[in-house]
């Protein structure tokens, strides 16, 4: 079969009208050996991350470390300010009145954790990303309202234009579209 005239593809995308259909399709695709794929849904579906067998996120560890840095940073900042930079006698208390440093330490801990979480989330999702090939499919506009999509990417070693399209058709989608890169 000749492929000369066919343009390169990002992948093939099947459209479903229920979450169950998407979960089923994702499970089937995994069983068939596909790995380079992604599912798109207007609402969070807990089972999907299992069906896609996504790797465990490293974000919690990063957030923990961010919190720890904030915690130590805040405490050291207060210590430095109260004992070295501005050693003032306040109510006869020792300069290193550490209980009074805890509220600020707590706040900077939260700040460190929250900032790490926010930017870590964007970074690990490769955001902001103004262009993505799936936007080339007109039906995909409904991915944020009421449609569910499974996209098997051409990067997958098992991907074959005809066979994968047939495979997706067998999952009873509303339709299968080719995704231009």
């Amino acid at each position: 079969m000749s492929h000369e005239s066919t343009p390169t593809l990002y992948g093939l995308m099947a459209e479903f009208d229920t979450a169950e259909g998407l979960i089923h399709a994702t499970e089937q695709a995994r069983l068939a050996g596909y790995r380079a794929m992604d599912a798109y849904s207007p609402l969070p579906i807990e089972e999907l991350s299992e069906a896609l067998d996504l790797p465990k996120t490293r974000l919690p560890k990063a957030v923990f470390i961010g919190g720890l840095v904030g915690c130590l940073g805040g405490f050291l900042l207060e210590t430095w300010a109260s004992t070295i930079a501005y050693p003032m006698n306040i109510g006869g208390r020792p300069l290193f009145s550490w209980p009074q440093f805890i509220p600020v330490t707590f706040e900077t801990t939260v700040l460190g954790a929250a900032l790490t979480c926010f930017f870590g989330m964007w970074g690990s999702n490769k955001l902001p990303q103004p262009y993505h090939p799936v936007f080339n499919v007109p039906e995909f506009a409904r991915a944020s309202t009421d449609r569910f999509f499974l996209c098997i990417e051409a990067a997958d070693p098992r991907f074959d234009r005809e066979a994968t399209a047939r495979f997706l058709q067998d999952l009873h989608p509303l339709g299968v579209s080719e995704v231009a890169p």
Binding site: G91, S97, P99, Q100, I102, P103
Partner: peptide, 12 residues
């Protein structure tokens, strides 16, 4: 608990 301790500590 910490709030109670801190307020006592600060007010003395």
């Amino acid at each position: 608990n910490f709030s109670q301790f801190l307020l006592t500590y600060a007010a003395n």
